Simulated scan of single mutants.
Amino acid sequence: MNHHLLLIIHLLSAAIWVGGHILLCVAYLPKALKEKDTKIILNYEKKYEPVGMTSLFLLVVTGILMAYKYGVTINYWFQFATPIESVVSSKLILLFTTAAFALSAQFRVLPKLKTNPRKLPEMTFHIVSVTTIGILMLIFGSFIRFGGF
Score class of each variant (00 low, 15 high):
residue 6 L to F: 04
residue 12 L to M: 11
residue 12 L to Y: 07
residue 14 A to P: 00
residue 15 A to W: 01
residue 15 A to C: 13
residue 18 V to H: 02
residue 18 V to T: 12
residue 20 G to C: 11
residue 21 H to L: 13
residue 22 I to R: 08
residue 23 L to G: 04
residue 26 V to C: 03
residue 27 A to Q: 00
residue 27 A to I: 00
residue 28 Y to H: 13
residue 30 P to N: 14
residue 31 K to M: 06
residue 32 A to N: 05
residue 33 L to W: 10
residue 36 K to E: 14
residue 39 K to D: 11
residue 39 K to L: 13
residue 40 I to D: 03
residue 41 I to N: 04
residue 41 I to F: 05
residue 42 L to T: 02
residue 44 Y to N: 01
residue 46 K to H: 12
residue 47 K to D: 09
residue 49 E to M: 08
residue 49 E to V: 06
residue 49 E to Q: 13
residue 51 V to I: 15
residue 53 M to G: 05
residue 57 F to Y: 08
residue 59 L to K: 00
residue 60 V to S: 05
residue 60 V to P: 04
residue 61 V to G: 01
residue 61 V to H: 05
residue 67 A to M: 07
residue 68 Y to M: 03
residue 71 G to T: 07
residue 71 G to C: 04
residue 71 G to F: 03
residue 73 T to A: 08
residue 75 N to Y: 11
residue 76 Y to W: 02
residue 76 Y to A: 10
residue 78 F to H: 05
residue 79 Q to K: 10
residue 82 T to P: 11
residue 83 P to E: 03
residue 83 P to D: 09
residue 83 P to Y: 05
residue 85 E to S: 09
residue 86 S to I: 14
residue 87 V to N: 08
residue 90 S to I: 14
residue 92 L to R: 13
residue 96 F to C: 12
residue 99 A to D: 01
residue 100 A to K: 08
residue 101 F to Y: 15
residue 102 A to P: 02
residue 105 A to M: 11
residue 107 F to I: 06
residue 107 F to Q: 12
residue 108 R to F: 12
residue 111 P to V: 06
residue 111 P to N: 12
residue 112 K to H: 13
residue 113 L to T: 01
residue 113 L to D: 01
residue 113 L to F: 01
residue 113 L to H: 02
residue 114 K to T: 03
residue 119 K to M: 14
residue 122 E to H: 03
residue 122 E to S: 13
residue 123 M to K: 07
residue 123 M to F: 15
residue 125 F to I: 14
residue 125 F to M: 10
residue 128 V to K: 15
residue 129 S to F: 06
residue 130 V to P: 06
residue 131 T to V: 00
residue 131 T to G: 01
residue 132 T to A: 15
